[in-house]
Amino acid sequence: MTGFYHETAFYGSDDDFLAIAVPFVEGGLRDGQPTMIACAQKNTALLRDALGREDAVTYLPGADQYSRPADAIASYRDIFGKHSRQGATQIRTVGDVPHPGYGVPWDWWGRYENAVNQAFAEFPLWGLCPYDTRTTPPEVLADVARTHPYVAAASGEHLPNPGFGNGSPLSNPVADVLEQGSPRVSLVDPTPAAVREAVSAAITGTELTEDNAHDIVYAASEIVTNGLSHGVAPVRFRLWADDSRVVVTATDDGPGPSDPMAGLMPTTATRSAGLGLWILHRTCDYVSMGRDEDGFTVRVSVGGSGHT
Score class of each variant (00 low, 15 high):
D211G: 07
G81S: 11
P160L: 04
P105C: 06
T135V: 14
G28P: 06
T8D: 05
D71I: 06
G163F: 01
G127L: 10
I20G: 04
G304W: 01
D294Y: 10
A250Y: 03
S171E: 13
N166H: 10
E26R: 15
G3Q: 12
R238P: 00
I20A: 01
T251R: 00
Y131G: 00
D64P: 00
V144M: 05
D294G: 03
M1Q: 13
P124R: 01
I203D: 01
R196A: 15
E26C: 06
A153C: 08
G263C: 03
S229V: 10
C284P: 00
A269H: 03
Q90W: 11
A219G: 06
V232M: 10
I79T: 14
V246K: 00
P160H: 00
D14R: 11
E197C: 03
I79K: 02
Y218I: 06
A121Y: 10
A70W: 03
L18G: 02
D71L: 14
E222F: 08
W106N: 04
V144S: 02
R238W: 01
A273M: 13
D31Q: 12
T44G: 08
D14L: 09
I279Y: 12
G32R: 02
Y112K: 02
A56H: 10
R30Y: 10
I73C: 03
I73L: 08
I37Y: 00
L18K: 09
S13R: 08
S155V: 00
A50T: 11
T270H: 14
P173C: 10
I20K: 00
A241T: 13
R53V: 10
V232W: 07
D242H: 10
G227M: 08
P173M: 00
T225G: 10
Q86F: 12
A219E: 04
Q118T: 14
S301E: 15
R245W: 05
V195L: 00
N114T: 13
S258E: 14
F10L: 15
A220F: 06
T225W: 11
G295T: 04
C129Q: 01
A88Q: 06
R184I: 09
V302P: 00
E122K: 11
V97W: 04
H83K: 07
L128P: 03
R53F: 01
V94D: 00
H6P: 02
R271H: 12
V174N: 03
P192A: 04
S258N: 10
P149A: 07
T308S: 12
Y218F: 15
G263N: 02
G110D: 08
G101T: 08
D78N: 14
P266W: 07
T225I: 02
P98N: 05
I91M: 12
A145S: 11
Q180R: 14
Y286I: 03
A250M: 04
T308V: 09
G165C: 00
F296P: 02
R282L: 04
F10D: 03
D189S: 12
V247T: 13
